[in-house]
Design a protein around this nucleic acid. Sequence first.
RNA 1: GGCGAAGUGGCCGAGUGGUUAGGCAGAGGUCUGCAAAACCUUCUACAGCGGUUCGAGUCCGCUCUUCGCCUCCA
Length: 484
Amino acid sequence: MSLFIYNSLGRTKEKFEPLHPPVVSIYVCGPTVYGHAHLGHAKSYVSFDVVVRWLRHSGYQVKYVQNITDVGHLTDDGDEGEDKIMKQARLEKTDPMEISQFYTRSFYEDMDSMGVLRPNIAPAATAHIPEQIAMIEKLVQSDHAYEVNGNVYFSVESFSGYGKLSGRTDQDALQSGIRVEVRSDKRHPSDFALWKKADKHHLMKWTSPWSIGYPGWHLECSAMSMKYLGETIDIHGGGMENKFPHHDCEIAQSESVTGKPYVRFWMHNNMVTINGIKMGKSLKNSVNLKELFKEIDPLVIRFFILQSHYRSQLDYSETAIKASSTGLEKLRETRRRLREQKTGSGVFALSPFEQRFSEAMDDDFNTPVAIAVLFELSKSINIALDRLEGMSEISRQETETFLDKAGREILGILQDENLSDNRGNELSGKKMDDVMHILLDLRAEARKNKDFALSDRIRDRLLDAGIEIKDTKEGANWTKSSGF
RNA sequence: GGCGAAGUGGCCGAGUGGUUAGGCAGAGGUCUGCAAAACCUUCUACAGCGGUUCGAGUCCGCUCUUCGCCUCCA
């Protein structure tokens, strides 16, 4: 069985083999840190988190680089426009460094709570200005770039494959009719900036051979990817909206410098929509994660995201999230039951599930199918445990191990086994267990005496306190009530 | 205008030629003191029109609709 990945370059699924096994080099476009992360970020980084987890699980040594864009790029492509981070700094009456640091921390907080593993290297663009300048110098020396008035542009006509990723290869056709002519120093309208001269109000600027200025917005990924992962990397991931121009520009400048293929597999994740419309900061319809997490368990969001494929659009709605919440609870419940129920003698046929799970993941990270397999497994487990003979200890352990591997290690939707899942941190202490034991004992006694008024009162009041009681054949157990 | 993606049952969402996706919601049932959970049964599909094929959500053509990119954006 081998892994197939849909390669945007070529638009087909291709068998994945790393260039230098067992190492897999992967670079994913990181956030521009000038605001809190939203659901779109969540989809992207959760998706690639699972990619990385599956690659590691498959035995690869994954080197995962994800940048932090902390130099604001211009808000428009002409020579006009404002640096986004600078603009936010002005709005918040502070300086750009504080903005980028503040929102970088915020970003990781949100990702951590969804169980997104940190990248191996998270390079900041502003910490790699010399690398970017060095790259520009090479491009100027080899006539792929030219300087005009302190600005340096990449010459699109110097690179024959420009636009091959997005299919936009005819640059002249692209220009027809759309854009009102912008006053520019560019030789060709499609040429893009590698270095921009700063005006005197610009706060983030550095010395370069051409001017005091700042790097162009496509450059950091190329420079940092090459520095940490080499001239040719296995996988480059990012949002679909970045295919053009961002990724096409990266290819052009990188391959012009090295003469080698820049990326072997391009992976593009699709976007989150609200009522069918793209969610975006600039569209002012984005769903802020911190707000969302006040209402909804971050792992429910993760689960919701993984229930659709990374290359599909995901439409956000409260009912869809609610459905995910209930569904995830079902899986959690099964895992809890599997762990807590007394074992018997029945044998459980696990391997078909393991196999189908792996096949789904190997087929371009098909997490919706992988999750469907877990639901079917959940049902089979419940049926097995309902049988008189139950499940043997060996079967139980095997199954629990797999559920843990698939649900926790790979998909990251189930929590650590030692935390009692949904009982939550604040309730998971041993003391709490002891207290609950007392209450459940008292309630059992009341039920035995047919004092249902009392037993129901205990149950109702605990529910008010956020604790849900379920009676099973094995006796009562409790969880933190799931709530929406 | 150019480049690209998509239209699946009440909702979400898989499925690149032949066999049940899955989840949520709805209905009926089993279990339970009741409830919850679990399990069983069950209803509503493949935008439209042609074509290829023994056989098509699945391939081809056309039509309609939606979305993304071509300014920053996950």
